[in-house]
Design a protein around this nucleic acid. Sequence first.
DNA 1: CAGTGAGCGAGCTTCCGCTTGACTT
Length: 768
Amino acid sequence: MIENLVIVESPAKAKTLEKFLGKDFRVVSSFGHIRDLAKKNLGIDIVNNFSPEYEIPKDKVKIVNDLRKAAGESRIIWLASDEDREGEAIAWHLASVLNLDPASTRRIVFHEITKDAISNAVLNPRQIDMNLVNSQQARRILDRIVGFEISPVLWKKVQPALSAGRVQSVAVRLIVEREREIISFKTESAFRVTGLFHPETAEVQENNLIRAEASKKFRDEKDAEAFLKHCIPAKFRVSGITVKPGTRSPAPPFTTSTLQQEAYRKLGFSVAQTMTVAQKLYEAGKITYMRTDSTNLSRLALAKSKEVIVAEYGEKYSKTRQFKTRSKTAQEAHEAIRPAYPEAQTITGSQNEKKLYELIWKRTIASQMSDAEIERTTILIGMNNSPVTFTATGEVIKFDGFLRLYSESTDTENGDDEKHILPRVEKDMNLLYNTITATQKFTSPLPRYTEASLVKKLEELGIGRPSTYAPTISTIQNRGYVIRGDRPGEKRQIKVLTLSGDRLTSSIRSEAAGKEKSKLFPQDIGMIVNDFLVENFPDIVDYNFTAGIEEQFDKIAEGRLKWTGMLDKFYPVFHKKVTDTLEKKDRKKGIRVLGNHPETGEKVSVKMGRFGPVAQIGDSDTGEKPRFASLLKNQLLETITLEEALNLFRLPRSLGIHEGDEMIAGTGRFGPFIRYRNKFYSLKKGVDDPYTVTLERGVEIIREKNESDSKKVLKDFGDVLLLNGRYGPYLSRDRKNYRLPKGSDPEKMTREDCIRIIEETEKKQKRT
DNA sequence: CAGTGAGCGAGCTTCCGCTTGACTT
């Protein structure tokens, strides 16, 4: 018989905890929730007071059996799951599933694993808080009802296997609405004028130039040119200098959301990748828990960080701070994400683990360092013949403080606003210009979301939790609602006017506009589903829906509202919307009529077809069979033009007859191709175009392909092939490919050698 | 693997939040 059994949620936490508690304590883990609503069906008896039907998921059966056994062997059970509504629910499910006797069961909580915190918790046990549990049940049941009632409506009215939910549908909506802002954005341009000045009395030198920006922007080239000409006879004078001291403070330590953002910006990690690497670090005991919404640091962490800072940089650089958590819906069951041992600046591990750890270490330590002290200087330059003024701002760091270690990145990179050191000037000093430049600047729409900036937005709206940000982003991509991708951007011409002495020259520069990397783009099906939901379930996809129900969950947790009462109010209204929507006849296909065919006058339209977005010429009710063509990958139903749609019908096209058989050019799932005698040949990217490729070129492509194919088969043993591929020689049998072991010589290999390699590979695969 | 776009119907899909492995290359 063991005296005490402590149950926590995470096995890594169990391991650490065991070290702190004596021999009398055994610590085990529940691996999160052990029970959930029934997987099949709704799992809720709505007419019977929303009574939930709970079951133990398959992958938790063994864990529950182990827990049951351990509980039977112990005298006192300590339920130490997290102190938030999910944690409370876990404790309650444990008590119920393991059939724990209240007399021998204690509920305890602690936020940090230190001797003090744990002994304090053990001295202050309490009962399971049923109000908190009920707020979790309300949350769980509401999410199930919303997801499991709306998704089938989508299967009927839009397309099978789609999904909707309180969190994912808002995530998609954000992306779709951002795309529409971009589509309707009208670019404007204006001329921005900057001058390089130097004191009249001094020669022009690198270090005495003042870069200043004009207070006025000019609408067009003519206005800008007129102003520059006006500058030629003008006298420039320093009309004011202000020097203002300022400070900058470090960012708080990482939460899940901010870690995902910074790891994307500084290391280029995807949200999922950040979480995988962080999980590794956590399991290795190198960082604290990585799914948290708290910016709190334990007293121990504060003290340790201070030691590190004082030893490394001196007392002056240390400033102990505790940060208030920004997010309103935060449940703060854990600490911020920080190094488990702040004294370890680096760790061993994979490259990515090292990089992420270093980021976490720097951010944590910097958060405990002094403010940076900055002196901001502004020089105002006046003109004697114009009300336009020029302003130069410079920044001098008087004391670097935390900046010595870390500064946070932003989502918008504007290199233009770089702050620089200004030369010494005095008021009323006369200045001469070296050059004055007017540069055309274009306005641009808000950028598309990255995975990380979407997480940031969701967190601001209080939607989703640290443990679900990464899975949500995967879900909306898996459903095909959005896709992560790049856009090369378009070359844009910029006019630049330069005044040097009394010579005015004009030049043209080009820049890439709208270039995007690793951004989230909505797909047609995402836009159609979003419009359908906004039309039929506006309350559910409202950005404030979650915030509203969270308030009610809080009331339930405080015992001021009955959880069944809350659902009683919500459900009838919601369910009526579901049945009303199901009664509507039409399916949502995103049909758009683009116009009429210029020659035949037939209707040209686009819609979501059975196999994806499709363009259509003609109408089935005219009696004639309509013609169809799939849209290309980068085209949207919403933005495709009549001309682009008509272009799709130019393929497949015949290139002519070669040696008695027809050659066809087309474009398919794997890009442009030509077809000849029932065989397909890919067109080379950037070289051949299916619209213009000729019969002669087709013959050449076929000859090249046949030549490389003949080189492809190194040895043919009938059932086994030794082939030459992109990555070198490999084996093929039954359409399955096998790598050759290192150092094997394909020239000398016999059929027996090949079969041996295949069998060994198969065996290895089975074992793992 | 490079197509498809008639219509019917059986049987499937689906949520959010806690947790890790078990998979693949």
